[in-house]
């Protein structure tokens, strides 16, 4: 019996493109994002992703006002 390949997701945050508004932090249904301690090129504390658990819903992506600060990556296991 053929099984569907397993899909997982990852939230990549471009450190220097985040303005630290925390909209994504508010939006994430699984609370996987928070503002980090490091200050980026523009002088903002960029958001950081917890590392795992992303369901690829896009809530953070669409809440983010920056064009390329958040990228949702879909990972397909062989």
């Amino acid at each position: 019996m053929e099984t569907k390949p397993k899909k997982t997701f990852r939230c990549d945050i471009a450190f220097d493109e985040c303005k630290g508004c925390s909209r994504c932090v508010e939006a994430c249904p699984r609370s996987l994002l928070k503002l980090g301690d490091a200050i980026n090129m523009m002088g903002f504390p960029a958001a950081v992703y917890a590392g795992e658990g992303c369901i690829g819903c896009g809530a953070c992506y669409y809440s983010c006002p920056e064009p390329g600060a958040i990228t949702i990556v879909e990972i397909t296991e062989d």
């Binding site: 220097d16 630290g20 523009m42 903002f44 669409y62 809440s63 006002p65 920056e66 064009p67 600060a69």
Partner: peptide
């Protein structure tokens, strides 16, 4: 700064621009 828009952090314009 060439990758970001000029809007303030959390601005609704950015969200709409993306849509």
């Amino acid at each position: 700064i060439k990758k970001n828009m000029h809007y303030c952090p959390g601005c609704g314009h950015g969200v709409l621009h993306k849509l």
